[in-house]
């Protein structure tokens, strides 16, 4: 990443700040004991108001029945309702989606990055940029394009290909398997370029000396890949698969763009979609919060497993 800039012009800006005798309060505000806390205060406020309070309130809400002007505690009744066939459908859809996206969005970008990093490919920058461009689109616009490409009509791109291969046209949005295919391909299309960049950054960190030493020892291209490249990619592979897993459990838009809030036989229902459907759609905020708490526990357990498996504290983000 970029290096810090140079501060050649700073002396000029210093001369402008003329020395003044500060009063006591200003001196207090400027003391080195106070200044850091003032700088950090936006974070403290946002943490308390926008993270800690909603987290606690969410847990409280999950034990409540919430109707306009009438909130009462109902113990574990929301949780008893959570484990129903719709939730299991949402959870199994989400899990399958996570497994498929992790496999695709780790292996394919890794392979593409290794090839892009080799001396074999020309015009690398153009290819890297083209692969990255889908990441600039929103899921809604991307999904709209995929809806039109995978429309039920015989004349859509997807069905033209399918017909060309000698098969019948497919109602893409109405079969369980093709519904999953649509969500996975949309997510993969949008994220592949970003993940390629992660792998490329790591590949460029591997020192050339290792490969030179291997050359002297007469290692083949495959041996260099197997014993130098792949082991060095381990940390970034763990990172990429971790954020893909977390993003997978947060998935909502990829389903919404194809079916809004209700899909035939719930073939597109996801856990977050279920929270939205119950909490906002049905206005059952207590029940929605209970699903949210269960989702939090699932993600928490996965993070712990990940932490143990890798032995390091890994960061996840959007």
């Amino acid at each position: 990443m970029s290096s810090p800039g140079q501060g050649s012009h700073t002396s000029a800006s210093l001369e402008k700040t003329a020395y003044k005798e500060p009063n006591k309060f200003l001196r207090f505000l400027n003391s080195k004991k106070v200044v850091p806390y003032i700088f950090v205060s936006p974070f403290i406020l946002s943490f308390l108001i926008l993270t800690l309070y909603p987290a606690i309130h969410g847990i409280i809400m999950s034990f409540q029945s919430i109707l306009p002007g009438q909130v009462e505690f109902i113990g574990l009744r929301n949780y008893e309702r959570v484990f129903n066939p719709n939730f299991y459908k949402a959870l199994s859809n989400t899990t399958i989606y996570v497994i498929l996206t992790v496999i695709i969005l780790t292996l394919v970008p890794m392979l593409l990055a290794i090839l892009l990093n080799s001396k074999l490919v020309k015009f690398k920058t153009i290819f890297r940029a083209s692969i990255f461009i889908p990441a600039l689109t929103s899921t809604i616009v991307g999904g709209m394009i995929f809806r039109l490409m995978f429309s039920e009509a015989d004349s859509s791109v997807a069905n033209q290909i399918v017909n060309f291969l000698g098969m019948e046209s497919i109602d893409w949005r109405y079969n369980a398997w093709s519904a999953m295919f649509l969500m996975v391909i949309l997510a993969s299309w949008r994220w592949i370029g970003v993940n390629v960049l992660y792998f490329l950054a790591q590949l460029q960190n591997i020192s050339d000396e290792l490969y030179e030493a291997a050359d002297i020892d007469g290692a083949s291209a495959f041996q260099k890949l197997r014993y130098i490249t792949i082991p060095h990619l381990k940390p970034i592979t763990i990172f990429v698969s971790t954020i893909t897993i977390i993003n997978g459990f947060r998935m909502f838009e990829e389903s919404f763009v194809f079916w809004e809030t209700s899909s035939p036989g719930n073939i597109g229902l996801t856990v977050v979609g279920y929270i939205y459907q119950q909490g906002i759609g049905q206005n059952d905020m207590g029940f929605g919060s209970a699903i949210g708490v269960v989702l939090m526990l699932i993600i928490f357990v996965i993070s712990i497993i990940n932490l143990i498996a890798t032995g390091t504290f890994k960061r996840g983000d959007e």
């Binding site: 080195k32 806390y37 950090v40 909603p54 309130h57 809400m61 909490g279 906002i280 993070s303």
Partner: peptide, 30 residues
């Protein structure tokens, strides 16, 4: 800056990074 609680704040930043927004959205909406 070197100040009391600096490490705590940093750990909190990392912690919030790991909490999906979707889990907080209903109470935030409320």
């Amino acid at each position: 800056y070197d100040f009391k609680g600096r490490n705590l704040f940093f750990v909190l930043v990392l912690l919030i990074l790991m909490i999906p927004f979707e889990i907080l959205m209903l109470p935030l909406y409320q």
